[in-house]
Write a protein that binds this DNA or RNA. Structure first.
Length: 470
RNA sequence: GGCCCCAUCGUCUAGUGGUUAGGACACUGGAUUCUCAUUCCAGUAACCGGGAUUCGACUUCCCGUGGGGUCACCA
């Protein structure tokens, strides 16, 4: 949309994701943001970095950072700077940068672009309640800006305070979003946002602006939910007299009911998809198709190909619904396109806690390939190969099993011969395949029977049929 | 509710003034077939409404309507 704007910038492209360690893992929506940031950086020979925004001690989750970083890595989105690997602008963890924010906050105060506020929670609540009652948007009333003269003194006496942004009145703040074009807000709509909390930690707004500037982030690519706070950030850039980064606000992934993707209505943790047997490449490919389409309308393409054809401005502003159906299809396509060896490896890794007979597994890989939507489908499909299934048979079925055992016992052990005997049984007892299937495997459908049986030792099959009779 | 963003099949989307509105998932039917799959073929299905501009609007503009986001010492 704003190509000239995009190209005007000749600085090195640097993108970032700035997750907060407040959940179990990285949210799938953030993984989407990460993907776009990664791809855009790669496309422009730039750097993709990770900064951890752990400024909320209340919601802080021990171990979350580690899981986030490991998830990003397991999806193949490699970053060149981050809290675990360092980099030229370290530290990459905001809790380790507190002095920086405090220093800059002080500068803001000196220039009267920010001010100390000593208001209690009670007064704030009261103010908000009053404003809501009068159908006004709750906003801080600049009470401390206008009435407090002795801030330094009060602070030196140990009084708790916050630092607030001094939003000027009657101004229009405008910025350009690569995906949406020009967006403007009237400052009268904006609140004197808290910049520095009473615990000395910055809020998101202060931290993100300072760090993006200091870390030379060229493109701020984040989710749409940030649009309404961007004018505050723009104001901060102006107050600091810093050059604005280029903004791009990505659509928010939605639940099927169109609300913001939430864990109540959809699995949201990236690692859940791995645990359920989705391939990272498939998930990324699916995510790539959210709000964007391949110029040749391709559905299946690699991360590298995505990088080569991606344009940020081609992203659509519409919030797409997450379609787990299509994701399953996508995953199935990826599994089917795997080489036998690769699928073997994936299954072995996925079931590393189980000991699978490698030779047996290798034999049935081709049978599995077209039948698996996720790696987890393996259990349902192949359980009977590795372990004798529990089958309970009625009289007629026992008769059939007995006959089948008899026929198979006298046959050369290959799938053609086995198939022949199976067909004999079908005809003789006038039953259909699912019935026979159930007698042998305990289920009515699954891997092709002749090939499956042929993959097992003959004795094993005969024994199983005999055991089923008892 | 204020402000901001958005609007093509159920879903993901192609489309940039003139198209039989295309593809993918899902769904339905058929072919192949030793169950189930895979594969192949076919089908159902969409431009939110109203104005304006224009010879002509899915496409441009405005107004509605609808959806989403945001209004914290959370990010």
């Amino acid at each position: 949309m704003q190509e000239s704007y995009e190209n005007m910038n000749t600085k090195k492209v640097r993108t970032r994701i700035a997750p907060s360690p407040t959940g179990e893992d990285i949210h799938i929506g953030n993984l989407y943001t990460a993907l776009i940031n990664y791809v855009f950086a790669k496309k422009n020979n730039g750097e993709f970095i990770i900064r951890i925004e752990d400024t909320d001690r209340g919601r802080f989750q021990e171990g979350a950072e580690k899981r986030i970083l490991s998830s990003v890595k397991s999806f193949g989105l490699t970053y060149s700077e981050g809290p675990d690997i360092g980099g030229p602008f370290k530290p990459y963890r905001q809790s380790e940068r507190l002095e920086i924010y405090q220093t800059f906050a002080k500068k803001l105060i000196e220039k009267k672009n920010a001010y100390y506020c000593f208001c209690t929670k009670e007064r704030l609540d009261e103010l908000r309640a009053k404003q809501s009652e009068m159908k006004q948007t709750p906003r801080y009333d600049k009470h401390c800006l206008e009435n407090v003269q002795n801030s330094e003194e009060r602070i030196s006496h140990g009084e708790k305070y916050v630092v607030r942004l001094n939003v000027p009145r009657d101004q229009v703040v405008t910025f350009t979003d690569v995906i949406r074009g020009g967006i403007s807000f009237n400052t009268n709509e904006m609140d004197d946002q808290v910049l520095l909390k009473s615990d000395g930690f910055p809020t998101y707004h202060l931290g993100v602006v300072i760090d993006d500037h200091l870390m030379e982030v060229s493109h701020v690519i984040r989710a749409e939910e940030w649009i309404s706070s961007t004018p505050k950030h723009v104001l901060l850039y102006q107050f600091f007299d810093w050059e604005l980064p280029i903004f791009a606000h990505l659509p928010i992934l939605r639940n099927p009911d169109k609300s913001k993707l939430s864990k109540r209505k959809n699995p949201v943790w990236a690692s859940w998809y791995i645990e359920e047997g989705y391939l990272p490449e498939a998930v990324l490919n699916y995510l790539a198709l959210m709000g964007w389409s391949h110029p040749e309308q391709k559905e299946i393409f690699s991360l590298d190909e995505f990088v080569s054809v991606f344009e940020l401005k081609d992203i659509h502003p519409v919030g797409p619904a997450f379609d787990s159906n299509k994701l399953r299809w996508m995953n199935q396509q990826y599994i089917q396109n795997l080489s036998d060896g690769a699928l073997f490896e994936k299954i072995v890794t996925f079931y590393s806690d189980k000991k699978l007979d490698s030779d047996l597994l290798k034999k049935i890989i081709p049978l599995l390939k077209t039948r698996m939507e996720t790696l987890k489908d393996f259990e349902d499909l192949a359980a009977f190969i590795f372990e004798a299934p529990k089958v309970s048979l009625n009289q007629k079925e026992k008769e059939i099993a007995s006959k089948l055992g008899e026929l198979l016992a006298s046959v050369d052990w290959d799938e053609e011969k086995i198939l022949l005997q199976l067909k004999n049984i079908l005809q003789e007892y006038d039953i259909r395949m699912p019935t026979l299937y159930k007698i042998v495997t305990g289920k009515e459908k699954g891997l092709p029977l002749p090939q499956s049986l042929a993959s097992l030792p003959k004795d094993e099959v005969i024994n199983r049929l005999r055991d089923a009779l008892s």
